[in-house]
Design a protein around this nucleic acid. Structure first.
Lengths: 234, 234
DNA sequence: GTCTATATCATGATAGAC
DNA sequence: GTCTATCATGATATAGAC
């Protein structure tokens, strides 16, 4: 009984923290706000998580553990069906970014709140968060990177890595959904807060990402050896 | 003489604030840090700028005023030469994003420090900053949006607006350059801190953006009327 | 214009009763 | 596990001497 109550408290803190960190950032959210909105005592965060930093990490781990497993599961499944043949770039992109975007509809996995938090966190000022995220992502990103190398054997690996970065940026910003810049003044983005928006966003973003990924290679100002040097990593 | 000194003080505060806001974010940077590193008195910020918020706005205004003018100048010049004909998408993209990216080489306009600050700020938690940025950008973005509409008459306007967003996201993340995710584990991105990195980044990013912008239109799960409805803004 | 000193308040964390 | 009370620190901002 006491333990059940404690689990509720823990989860309630995590839920509120997730939402507040999303809305105001890590530095902009105080433990007093969190504990107040979660209707728990101020000391509860330190009791359950040890510190504000550990709380932040737990907010992410709770969601990323599932996302990492799902991304791996999807990739393994696709590679099993391909039976040694390279995957299509669209499959890989969907496995990585589509799996992420579909979390928007799954409130049990954080839904849009977590997606927006994640989107904003890639450029989060606090270094410990970026370091933590990099560590959490490393293994899965590596597998998808390798799949792309195999799927696009004619594209220099350096280009693929860069384009992975660009895809991440476009996706992060899209899910951060800050409406920071009202690109639309006379024209309103429909239903900006509902999942309806995501239904449209996903295919739109996918088209964009794939177009960028398969775009003609850039011309550098130097000669062809430049590209070769880049591929080899210097 | 006293005025010259005061100008120096003002500029020194702005320079230090720009660098610290970039590195630690708005909430993560205290006025004590700023005034300490700028070797000015703690009260100097309030004397010269009135408040921390006003300082932040001035940090941006100092750079964005020039960027906005330059983007307008470039677009006007291109449209003058085109004499009524639509511009090429690559011209428009270069006018907007290329003009921004070339600031990296111009230390007098803030160089990489300001670019990284700007990249991180689009997802900045503090709302007053995003509101301020949106206001600063509005007019110029609107002009470029119209140019894209004219250049791509067969693409629904809604798609163009979305793809503008995606391009902004990819660019922001690229210039934020947080190295948040070490996408490369066995492969090091060369010269990550030098302008040499930008020389390669610009054509790479441009290829990606144009590929995404001109990608085939997405297929929605509903019928064709869906796209029409989207174009009309509901 | 610049400085010292300080007012006022919020923060993260903890000790210790219950 | 939960609470109150409090510590130590750092925040922004300002008043007033020089």
């Amino acid at each position: 009984m006491a333990e059940v109550k404690s689990l509720d408290t823990r989860e309630r803190i995590l839920d509120v923290a997730e939402r507040l960190f999303m809305a105001h950032g890590y530095d902009g959210t105080s433990m007093r706000q969190i504990t107040s909105e979660a209707t728990v005592n101020l000391a509860a965060v330190n009791y359950h998580f040890g510190s504000k930093e550990s709380l932040m990490q737990e907010v992410f781990r709770r969601r990323l553990d599932w996302l990492n497993e799902e991304r791996m599961r999807v990739l393994n499944e696709m590679e099993r069906e391909a039976a040694g043949n390279p995957l299509k770039p669209s499959q890989i992109v969907d496995g990585f970014f589509g799996t992420l975007l579909r979390m928007a509809d799954d409130d049990q996995r954080g839904g849009m709140t977590f997606l927006r938090l994640l989107g904003r966190t890639l450029t989060e000022p606090s270094e410990f968060i970026r370091t933590f995220l990099a560590h959490e992502y490393a293994v899965v990103v590596d597998r998808y990177k390798e799949a792309l190398f195999k799927a696009l054997p004619d594209v220099p690996k350096a280009e693929i890595v860069w384009r992975f970065h660009f895809m991440l940026g476009a996706t992060s910003y899209a899910i951060a959904g800050t409406d920071a810049l009202r690109l639309v003044t006379d024209w309103q983005i429909e239903a900006a807060d509902s999942e309806d928006r995501m239904d449209r966003l996903v295919p739109r973003l996918m088209s964009f990402l794939l177009g960028g990924l398969r775009s003609p290679l850039p011309q550098f100002s130097n000669d062809a050896a430049t590209i070769e040097a880049t591929v080899d990593g210097k």
